[in-house]
Amino acid sequence: MQIHQDWHWLDAAGRGTSCALGNFDGVHLGHQAVIDLARGPAPLGIVTFEPHPRQFFQRDAGPFRLMNAEARANRLAKLGVEHLFQLPFNAGLAALTPEEFARKVLAEGLGISHVVIGEDFCFGKGRAGRAEDMKRLGEKYGFTTTIAPLLKQGGIGISSTAIRDALSEGRPGDAAAMLGHLHRIEGAVIHGEKRGRELGFPTANMDLTGLHLPRFGVYAVRVDVLSGPQEGSYMGAASLGVRPMFNGVAPNLETYLLDFKGDLYGRHLSVALVEFLRPELKFDGLPALITQMNEDCDQARAVLAAG
């Protein structure tokens, strides 16, 4: 998959695509339905934004994203996307009227042949453009438009908000049913305080800045090591939270890979939340914590072995 970071000066190889347009946070089943409608004889593309427009307009809002740009790109590549147009969302782009966005960005800048948008999609300054406006503007500027209906599950629309709610309540299985895949946290392994190593459970620490925080606690996880000599898939147990035993403040993800030996610092991991095992707890002492960690690993192994 080729990633384009701007809509100016696009080379000829990236033009003429059939694109799905949206934020695609989570790349859930609704997003996948939109993407499927863009498949055809033309190369498949995605037009999205970085940062998320909500981050630009609501700078003081709490973290809400289901995935960072790296995780989104990895997921889109798995869906067969050939061109990812990851447009920088800034004051200039936000100021474009719906017609200017359609003409300058989609038609002239990216040279798309077709665009697919959800029926509730809004675009342009003040979110003034609606789906039918895109259809009209496409006819004017030389691209066709498909409007995708909202996908529902059990009579309820699939949305990033519903997925966030499921994760906040410790229901990763319900989130996965709407996503069409396990919810994953991806990023580089960073240096922590190395307490896990001292306790006999060396963990891979990952930063959660900017991401929606699932329920704090311990999870059975599946881990993909995406780079380095240990590249591959592993079972694991992960603690997500602030580490109350050690008076932590900033939340992070600490993952212990079962049956693994090696150094993962700087490597990129993809950690999939499979099942919530227990809430975050504060123990009376280290022996009680170590006993619980052994039980967590045994339970995680049993859950993951059962499929």
Rank of each mutant, 00 (worst) to 15 (best):
E119N: 03
G187N: 06
F101K: 05
G210V: 05
F143K: 12
L211T: 07
A95S: 11
A38T: 13
P251F: 13
L167V: 02
F283R: 15
A166P: 01
A238C: 06
N90Q: 01
R197Y: 01
T203F: 04
A166W: 07
Y234Q: 03
C297I: 14
V115A: 15
A177W: 09
A61D: 01
V47C: 07
N247A: 14
P214R: 09
G241L: 12
Q292I: 01
G170E: 03
E254T: 12
N23E: 08
Y219E: 05
N68H: 08
T144P: 00
S233N: 11
F89V: 00
L211I: 04
S160Y: 09
F85Q: 02
K125I: 00
G109T: 05
F143W: 09
A148G: 01
L182M: 09
L179R: 02
T161E: 08
N74W: 12
G236W: 02
R59A: 06
I158T: 13
R127V: 00
V221Q: 01
R164M: 04
Q292A: 15
I147R: 12
K140S: 11
R136P: 00
E139S: 07
E280I: 12
T97P: 10
L106W: 10
G228S: 09
E70C: 04
G180D: 05
H114S: 08
L277A: 03
F121R: 06
W7K: 10
K140V: 14
A102I: 04
A38Y: 05
R243W: 11
F283S: 06
A128S: 09
G126L: 10
D263V: 07
A288V: 10
G126E: 08
G248N: 08
L258K: 06
E108F: 10
D133H: 09
